[in-house]
Amino acid sequence: MSAAGGRRSTLPGFGLTMGLTLTWLSIIILIPLAGLFLRTFELSLDQFWGIVTSRRTLNALKISFGLAFAAAVVNLVMGLIVVWALVRYRFPGRRIFDAIVDVPFALPTAVAGVALTSLFAQTGWLGAPLAELGIKVAFTPIGIFIAMIFIGIPFVVRTVQPVLIDLDAEIEEAAASLGANRWHTVSKVILPSLIPALLTGFALAFARAVGEYGSVIFIAGNLPNVSEIAPLLIVIRLSEFRYADATAIAVVMLVAAFLIIFAVNRIQRWAQTRIPAH
């Protein structure tokens, strides 16, 4: 809570620090992003539409968004299981497992990429047994899916964790003493109060996986129309000096990312009005 009394601050430096902040923000973030949008205005609507709906672009966007969505669903379910075990149970190594949830945040994406590839390649520790079962992971869309799951692990866990810790024990006890069995208490009382956090974590994991590049390109195989993600197609178009194509794909992805942030903000506002602050 900010100090409600001192509405008009007597501290110095507001004009100077605000001016510097806006200048730095403009130079690093706003002008470069505006440049990207200006570039697309140089295209006619037909040109833009032609690029975005060309078979290869459309497939790359489908692969990035489709697999990112599927990976975020896995992260939603697995994240809930992981956070439940970490918060509610005591088991050996719990604190270490809690700490390593953040590894996908901290590990450089290129390192994650080569590590996952060597793990899931047909000669790899996990790739070899999977290959015997007839499942090929590396250099197929499944590989992209695996890398996107990896990169999204921390989001659901870290957004749900504080909510689950703060959850009022008395509500659960009340439900139980009123005769609800454990499954009813969990599904009717606990899970509903976790929904905003779960949705936020899901959206953040989804957004991250859509734009992910480093951890995906090594394991993906990068076959056009099959296992080529949208960020890679941007890089390829740039290397071919087809700036217009790269820009158009980038704008589509940026707008999608903004829509996701907007959704996250709405979810959080909805959660604040739904649950009275304690």
Binding site: I29, L36, G211, L232
Partner: peptide
């Protein structure tokens, strides 16, 4: 606005400077 870079694909963060 300050948070914006977190939701931009890394590739696009490079692309804007190429443009």
């Amino acid at each position: 606005l300050i948070d914006l870079p977190f939701s931009v694909s890394p590739v696009i963060s490079g692309l804007v400077f190429v443009l």
